[in-house]
Nucleic acid binder design. Structure first.
Lengths: 341, 341
DNA sequence: TTCAACAATGTAATCCATTACATATAAAGT
DNA sequence: ACTTTATATGTAATGGATTACATTGTTGAA
């Protein structure tokens, strides 16, 4: 491996000049610049990152704190982060926390220990305000989930608006008995989706029925989605539509409906959220809100990069647009002879 | 951030001694060792990795070359690698290649440029012998796929044996008309599974029928699995069992069967491979071969680590054991009135 | 013409941990 | 008692890039 001083010799200049060329300093004469570049290419020189990092006091490593990359939603985001990071010469330290706060803290301690230049947090409870003390000192970006009122840079979709879209659509279809399967977790998205659900009902003068709000588990597991749907469908007056806050839950709901002899969408409309890969693996394909996961990842890296480099006028909050996609699991409400309402 | 010389001062020794303590050199007196350790703890000193890496000429970065982390199979492996890597102070550079050879080469060029200490390749065509020239010079480990005859260290399951297990089971159930959905890709696992399929049939004096061997696409997509199943089930003499080389394909096959009015497993036995998350999301739950993905990942990191550190007597080939799990998609063959055979 | 101001480049210190080599002290051998 | 050997620790060079400061050369103003 050639070093900067090999290049300097080759180009007949000092190492300082080579370094200036490398870092695009203005004070280098164009012809010198040219000469150095030729030397660099001739020797196919690549600056030694350890040396540069040592001198610049950076690591070129970013931390990705995620509950679980095995979840395709996070995997897509991770791909976006990874592609952009690589492009900028960063590598990733992936911390799987399984939602465990102790491990989240352990992860962020890496920043203190200077093992990473910054962190992207993929899932974060609204009450984790302890993150502030890290965010005050180190570059941290929230991706998709965030903590309200703590103005930590973030990128996400507009969960409230997306839910409104869903609910307006379901109401438009003529449904009145609309339930939701939310989650026991404490994510901002969960809160916003629930609020969107309630607010839109109220807006249309439909009473919010607490029996129609049931919770799946923290990780939106298929199983818990199915169980939640059972709770809804076992009621005397069944809902005719269910808004699920994730596709996996929606899948669970559809399975539950089938087991109860209900046809989706004929007897029950089911809408999901996220649009991960499973939505079109089985009929009925799920009507859902598509999130731009890859772009969420890309964007969070960009913001983190700006944070690390103290870019002026950087974006502190990026909202990417979602897309509501109507597929097969939703249909107009039809009053049937046995219906009481 | 305290440095090694701060520690030296605090402990009243030279930096060399501190360094010796840090690296567990034998020649340090126990009481000195103790004193230095106290100083380290008092200042909560952490060695600066850039400086260490510069001096030691290493990066502490490993390359993970994968077609697509979005695939849960790879995601699980990645989690295993990641957890182990972090433990040893390595971070990961994830290269998504989408199976593109140019991008695979681009990835391995990082080794030449000293941007990573070694690489783990997650999917690799059997004919990619160009990898040898990198493997000769740099630490490279194959995980789950590999190139035969090129003795590059690797970890995988015994695909041939696993397929034998599956086939023996299906034959045991009384099936004679057994088809397989393989893939157009060029992975060693694909070849071995096909060979296992054929060999076991022959062993039981069942003729190999080429009409019963159809291919899904390279990525085992659901869609292509479904299409392949249609090809099998449209034949005059239908198979009564299908061995699919992936669960997603199996899922596709089950969907195709349903669409054709066949019940799984009553009318058709379907067996998958991998045991990723989807296998128990829908009934019938899929009978499949469970791969220890996380452990495959862990093990590959360990081997790579040994390669990087020239460990003597390291394992060059690790075969982890698979587990054949019988669930709902397989059942004994029952001769029906309309059956010709 | 002379000096200030600036442009272009060079010299050397710096980042921090590692390690070859040097030194000092103690234990062992004759 | 005196050299030899081993043990424990220190000094200083090293890895490669960056950058404050120094130097040289050039241009323009007075």
């Amino acid at each position: 491996m050639p070093t900067i001083s090999d290049v300097a010799k080759e180009a007949n200049v000092s190492v300082a000049t080579v370094s200036r060329v490398l870092n695009n300093h203005s004070s280098v004469r164009p012809e010198t610049y040219e000469r150095v570049h030729k030397a660099i290419e001739k020797l196919s020189f690549e600056p030694n990152m350890s040396a540069r990092n040592l001198r610049r006091n950076e690591t070129r490593v970013i931390l990705i704190v995620t509950p679980n990359i095995t979840n395709p939603y996070y995997a897509h985001i991770l791909t976006g982060i990874g592609d952009r990071a690589r492009e900028y010469g960063y590598s990733a330290l992936i911390y799987n926390t399984a939602g465990n706060e102790a491990r989240e803290k352990e992860a962020l301690e890496m920043l203190k220990k200077k093992k990473a230049d910054g962190a992207i947090l993929l899932a974060c409870n609204v009450n984790s305000i302890w993150i502030r003390e890290y965010a005050d000192k180190y570059p941290i970006v929230h991706c998709s989930e965030y903590i309200p009122d703590l103005d930590i840079p973030r990128v996400s979709v507009d969960n409230y608006k997306a839910t409104q879209d869903v609910m307006e659509y379901i109401i438009e279809l003529g449904h009145k008995r609309i339930a939701t399967i939310s989650s026991s977790n404490n994510y901002i998205s969960t809160h916003l989706r629930l609020k969107g659900y309630k607010d839109t009902l109220k807006k249309h003068d439909i009473e919010v029925n607490n029996d129609y709000i049931v919770l799946a588990d923290d990780e939106y597991s298929f199983k818990s989605g199915k169980a939640a749907a059972y709770k809804l469908l076992d009621q005397k007056i069944r809902p005719t539509a269910i808004f699920c806050i994730s596709d996996t839950i929606a899948l669970g709901a559809i399975t539950a409906a089938k087991e109860l002899g209900l046809q989706v969408p004929k007897d029950l409309t089911v809408v999901g959220f996220d649009d991960v890969d499973d939505t079109t693996k089985f009929h009925p394909y799920i009507t859902t809100v598509a999130q731009p996961c890859y772009e969420l990842g890309e964007e969070s890296f960009k913001i983190l990069y700006d944070c690390i480099n103290d870019t002026k006028d950087m974006n502190k909050e990026v909202i990417l647009s979602h897309k509501f996609v109507v597929r097969e699991s939703s249909a107009p409400f039809v009053k049937r002879y046995h219906e009481k309402v």
